[in-house]
């Protein structure tokens, strides 16, 4: 469905701070894939999602969606078929607008916005029903400003908003990392429910190896901007944390003990 070929992306190219964040990445995402993405800090996971979403233009390589070259498409145009949840819970919603207003903005993702009402009565009925799904009791607070909610509540809403209009591709960037363990777990369950019930094609970045193994049908590992591991199907099911660690030592060698992030 979506294909990255030879994608290379630099930050601060040509300066002494030059970083090669993605390095000749080739990846084919199939319809219905639920891919978990792991790798140490700075491996290029967020950059990979941003390159898919169109936040940064690559220096070489191409992005093809259903046969159409979308490499030069700006972010807002790609948003038509992408839903996205950020690592930072504050980035996915507008603090000064109400829950209903935020949801209405998401309900019109990729559609023309004209001079009709921003939030209609029908919208509100739909939102009340949708918000019930996340079970946080927000259905009675549709007119509260989002800024009044906690990070976990905001992240759950962002997830809901990203999937309200069915995305062809769902991008989740460590979307539970900033939450407390209990909320993180709830958000993860909601993620699993939304993704499997609508069979959404999904890329989910996580630092949690157990999660990465348990969820999804495919796993990729990034290291220094390259995909160093890509397992799917049966091989993925048989994968253990030890296999992943072994793979990890192989590329990182002696740095093993310093990288505790991967062991959680």
């Amino acid at each position: 469905m979506l294909e990255l070929s030879g994608l290379t992306l630099y930050f601060h190219k040509g300066s002494i701070n030059e970083v090669r964040a993605l390095s000749d990445v080739n990846l084919t995402i199939h319809e219905g894939d639920f891919i978990t993405v792991i790798g140490s800090n700075g491996a290029g996971k967020s950059t990979l999602l941003s390159a898919l979403a169109g936040s940064y233009a690559p220096h070489s390589g191409s992005v093809t969606m259903r046969g159409q070259d979308i490499t030069r498409w700006p972010e807002h145009k790609r948003a038509r078929f992408m839903g996205r949840v950020f690592q930072d819970p504050l980035r996915g919603t507008c603090a000064s607008l109400s829950i209903a207003q935020n949801m209405a903005l998401a309900l019109r993702r990729g559609k023309w916005r004209g001079l009709t009402r921003g939030v209609t009565a029908a919208d509100r009925r739909l939102f009340a029903a949708e918000v019930k799904k996340i079970g946080l009791g927000l259905e009675s607070r549709l007119d509260d400003r989002i800024g009044l909610l906690s990070g976990g509540q905001r992240q759950a809403l962002t997830l809901l908003m990203a999937t309200m209009v069915r995305p062809d591709l769902l991008l989740l960037d460590e979307h539970t990392a900033a939450l407390d363990p209990k909320t993180a777990n709830q958000t993860l369950l909601l993620t699993e429910h939304l993704v499997t019930s609508q069979s959404l094609t999904t890329l989910m970045v996580t630092h949690n190896m157990n999660q990465a193994i348990k969820l999804g049908n495919r796993l990729i590992m990034l290291h220094q901007g390259e995909i160093i591991l890509d397992v799917a199907g049966k091989a993925k099911e048989e994968l253990t944390v030890n296999d992943l660690l072994a793979q990890f030592y192989k590329v990182k060698g002696e740095e093993f003990s310093s990288d505790k992030m991967l062991l959680t």
Binding site: A53, E75, H76, K77, A79, R80, M82, R84, F86, L90, R91, G92, T93, C94, A95, S96, L97, L105, A106, R108, R109, G110, K111
Partner: peptide, 10 residues
């Protein structure tokens, strides 16, 4: 309010 948010909404 949040340019990243509304860009992601197309």
């Amino acid at each position: 309010d949040n340019r990243q948010m509304i860009t992601s909404q197309g």
